[in-house]
Write a protein that binds this DNA or RNA. Structure first.
Length: 471
RNA sequence: GCCCCCAUCGUCCAGCGGCCUAGGACGCCGGCCUUUCACGCCGGUAACACGGGUUCGAAUCCCGUUGGGGGUGCCA
């Protein structure tokens, strides 16, 4: 294939939808795989949508994902003159006509004529004059069929009689997206239109406009399977978790998100699913995309994200987790945060978290100055647990004599107390549980030894004494 | 209502007429490891929606049924 050119054409809606992100990704993968170009076109035919905030809401998530585009972003609203000229041409040639009917009037006419709801070409022969509030409608053929050749779906045929004369220019003079789409795709030299299946039904309209304008060869089309929720409905803003930025904020890694998104509707032939992007670029192609809708499965995303987090080096992890460990939501005073501490504990944290946002919950006891006891854990280890008081007393005494330079030694000291008490009392004594509750306030968490060394002798002893005093 | 799309384990993907006693991954269940929680490792569970064709042979091709979804705007 000779250097294709594709475009990602989102409508500015205030955020980037995961479904849009997947569309952007597939366009990008296709372009990169074939050494072509991907352009970014903001579909703001409704010019009110062209604000910097709306545009940033698209661009920033794309950058975060690592998807780049060629040239400057293009705005449909900047091309009003070109669209107006195309509309004028269609009217002049009789391919489109003016209409001044309101929705209510259209319904009345349907009812009066005993026809089902719809447009039925009501103004075709009314010779409406152009003016404020008057729309332009495209005259669709009454018979025959419009065929869409789709890379993912094959040939899809739409009977023209099922197409209504649709609006190509609104009452306020702005073009609708069908018109703008055809004109812009042509003018930008787009060779492949890759978008969601929800737009498949609009394609005959765009093609009809294309032909009426005599724009030459049509681009190839590929309609990607929809991303759906657990109930198999199209992912929607109102009911589903669809904002890409929200995923970022919770601590999903962009490379994990991209990897997961690539797997919805496509799979590598060798079945290796978690892999670097450059390999995906190499393996990806549109003819391997499946037509069936795909469930956006948070559990699978979690697994992939967790896998990527585990693969980070301690330094990388500490750097990437930092935004989640500093800032106003951090549970510890800012001056107690220390990246070095995170690096030392990174490996242990990485194997326990799914999202970066969970990191704080595993190390708060190391960075906070006070311990908050979980009462259930306290009861289990200190009240029901065997010989808690003796364990704490012995551990405290032996730790007082240690210099806290070796986590390994700290471990053997604490575990040794348990073993000795087990021996002398003749029952199994677990020394770790009461020490853990004393130091961390909870019954489960990171291995204690390295954090103890980091905490230092004074703080460790202070916490042990505090717990003993509470018994 | 009308138009369009879709149909392999619960989920995502492999399979593109014989290699299929249908493969991998997630999830789930069980075991091992472990003086916390996890990770890791091992094992198990589970699908070609149904009915007709075509063919020596069908998960793979065709038709129908059923089921699901999308569209049906002066949104995109």
């Amino acid at each position: 294939m000779s250097s294709p050119r594709v475009r990602f054409a989102p409508a500015p809606t205030g955020f980037l939808h995961v479904g849009s992100a997947r569309t952007a990704l597939f366009n990008w993968l296709f372009a990169r795989h074939h050494g072509g170009e991907m352009l970014l076109r903001v579909e703001d035919t409704d010019a009110a949508l062209k604000t910097q905030a709306y545009v940033d809401a698209i661009i920033e998530p794309l950058r975060w994902l690592g998807l780049d585009w060629d040239g400057e972003p293009c705005f449909q609203s900047d091309r009003r003159d070109r669209h107006a000229a195309a509309i004028e041409q269609l009217v002049a040639e009789g391919a489109a006509y003016f209409c001044d009917l309101t929705r209510a009037e259209i319904e009345q006419r349907c009812a009066a004529a005993g026809l089902p709801a719809g447009y039925h070409g009501w103004s075709r022969d009314r010779d409406v004059a152009d003016g404020p509030g008057v729309v332009v409608r495209f005259r669709c053929p009454d018979d025959g069929a419009t065929v869409v050749d789709d890379i993912v779906r094959g040939r899809v045929s739409f009977p023209n009689e099922s197409l209504e004369d649709f609006v190509i220019r609104r009452g306020d003079g702005s073009p609708t997206f069908h018109l703008a789409n055809a004109v812009d795709d042509h003018d930008m030299g787009i060779t492949h239109v890759i978008r969601g299946e929800d737009l498949l039904n609009t394609t005959p309209r765009v093609q009809l406009i294309w032909q009426a304008l005599d724009l030459g060869a049509l681009p190839a089309y590929a309609h990607l399977p929809l991303l759906v929720n657990a109930k198999r409905q199209k992912l929607a803003k109102r009911r589903d978790d669809v904002s890409l930025d929200d995923y970022r904020a919770r601590g999903y890694l962009p490379e994990a998100m991209v990897n997961y998104l690539a797997l919805l509707g496509w799979g590598p032939p060798d079945e290796v699913e978690i892999r670097p992007l450059d390999e995906i670029v190499e393996l990806f192609d549109l003819d391997a995309v499946k037509p069936a809708p795909a469930f956006f499965d948070p559990a699978r995303l979690d697994h992939i994200n967790a896998t990527y987090i585990k693969a980070l080096t301690p330094e990388q992890f500490a750097a990437r987790a930092e935004p989640f460990l500093t800032g106003p939501d951090a549970p510890w005073p800012p001056e107690r945060y220390d990246r070095g501490t995170v690096e030392v504990l990174a490996g242990e944290i990485q194997q326990r978290i799914v999202r970066l946002g969970e990191a704080a919950g595993w190390i708060d006891w190391v960075l906070c100055s006070d311990v908050t006891y979980d009462e259930k854990a306290w009861h289990k280890a200190m009240v029901k647990g065997r010989a808690a008081s003796q364990v704490l007393e012995a551990v405290e005494a032996r730790l007082a004599a240690d210099d806290f330079t070796s986590a390994e030694r700290l471990e053997s000291i604490v575990m040794g107390v348990g073993d000795e008490l087990t021996e002398s009392l003749g029952v199994r004594v677990r020394s770790q549980a009461p020490v853990r509750v004393a130091l961390t306030g909870t019954g489960a968490g990171l291995p204690l030894w390295e954090p103890m060394r980091l905490l230092g002798r004074d703080e460790t002893l202070r916490r042990l004494r505090a717990a003993r005093g509470r018994l």
